[in-house]
Simulated assay, not measured.
Amino acid sequence: MHEKIKRKCSFIAAMILTAVLFTGCAVQTNITFQENGSGRYEETISFAESTWEQIFSEDESDILNYYRTLYPQAEVFVSNETIRGTASKVLRLRMNFKDISEYRQLTSQTELLYSVTMQPNYFTRCKIYMPSDENTDEVFGFMDELEQMLESNDEFSQKMYEEIQNMDIRMSMTFPYSVTKTNGSVQEDHKTVVWDMKEMDKSERLYALFHTSNSVSAPKYTGADNGKNYNTGVSLKITSENLLNQVKVNDETTQSDTLFLSDEGVYNIKAYDINGNSSRITFRIDKTKPTVSGVKSGKTYNAPRIIKFSDKGGSGIRSATLNGTSIKSGKKISKKGTYRLIITDNAGNKKTVSFNMN
């Protein structure tokens, strides 16, 4: 965007913010999604009529051009309405999108970037993320954005900061299916969720969960097999034909369908979907090599030795060979020669000892 236009737009945005802060006006965002991913985006900003006239006088072109610059494909207009008994000016922006990708392109043009991910499973069937810092990917809440704008110590900025709680900022989303869980307020149609942005924690991510399947298939796991042992960390992915309700790892509940587990030990994982189907997987992570006593690498012995070995990692001994011949713990060695002992546990950890007997 041309620098002059950017400065003008920033000035108009500041005026809008000022009006909202000092008059208790409202900012309302409504997004409706259809089953095929298409939908409608609407943004409404209401001003007391006296405030509107004070800021924009009789010329509405600046504010209209500001939004038309951000949203060239949108319908933007101003109407006269009565809101809670007050004569008001209402700025409305409306535009349609054909799919989620186009929705992202539309909303990425604003400073308040909302991104929506529509995935087939779990809690991310529809998860709405708050504005994010482009440089660090750190998630910010709307109030953080305003506070950053008001960091100045001048009297005007301080007054704006004090009045920040007067804002009424809400977002609503209407989905094609009934919402099963959300941190917003579900409306009577069971498909629309409203979030009061002032009530959210600064970095809280808004979410709405719904599902479309009535499958009786249990959740499935990729990245690990039931009953197996591993000597490295395990990346486990859980998928379900229905929406996942919860996942338990050793009786601790997690809200993730992708797990990376690296600590040694046994993992009992159970996943439940929204229809009551469940499945379980159990595996062990053992990164510890078997221990050997009686002989040490590089040593030469002049008297018989008794070789003992064990697995402290918990997976158990899979094989033990001495010069290629299988042996058991407690094997006595007295014959002269060069020996190579290899002990392997069920997780694949290997202990090798080379020694000599005179």
Rank of each mutant, 00 (worst) to 15 (best):
M1E: 05
M1R: 13
R7W: 04
C9H: 11
F11W: 12
I16M: 15
T18D: 11
T23V: 11
T23E: 12
G24F: 10
G24V: 12
N36I: 00
Y41H: 11
S50R: 09
W52P: 01
Q54K: 12
Q54W: 08
I55L: 13
F56T: 04
E60D: 14
E60R: 04
S61L: 11
L64G: 03
L70D: 01
E75Y: 05
E75A: 11
R84S: 14
M95W: 00
I100P: 00
E102D: 11
L106D: 02
T110L: 10
S115Y: 10
V116E: 14
T117F: 04
T117K: 15
P120Q: 03
P120F: 13
N121Q: 08
Y122M: 06
M130G: 09
S132N: 06
S132I: 03
E134R: 07
N135W: 10
V139A: 09
F140Y: 14
L146W: 08
L146S: 07
E147P: 00
M149L: 13
S152K: 09
N153T: 08
E155M: 04
M167S: 09
D168E: 14
M171Q: 13
F175R: 00
P176T: 05
V179N: 00
T180M: 11
T182C: 03
G184L: 00
K191D: 01
V194P: 01
D196N: 15
K198L: 15
K198W: 07
E199G: 08
M200Q: 15
K202L: 11
R205F: 01
L206N: 01
L209C: 02
T212M: 08
N214S: 12
N214R: 08
Y221E: 06
N229V: 06
N229R: 01
Y230H: 04
T232I: 07
S235W: 08
L236D: 01
K237L: 14
S240K: 03
E241G: 09
N242K: 06
L243R: 06
L244F: 03
E252T: 11
T253Y: 05
T253E: 11
L259S: 06
L261G: 02
S262F: 01
V266I: 11
V266C: 07
K270D: 00
D273F: 07
N277Y: 02
T282P: 00
T282A: 03
R284Y: 10
I285R: 01
T288V: 13
K289Q: 08
G298P: 00
R305E: 12
I307G: 00
S310M: 07
S310R: 14
D311N: 07
I317K: 03
R318W: 09
S319D: 04
L322M: 07
N323V: 03
G324E: 03
G324W: 01
K331R: 14
I333G: 08
I333L: 10
S334C: 05
K335H: 07
K336M: 02
G337K: 06
Y339F: 12
I342L: 04
I343Y: 00
T344Y: 08
K350Q: 13
K350S: 13
K350V: 15
K351T: 15
V353I: 15
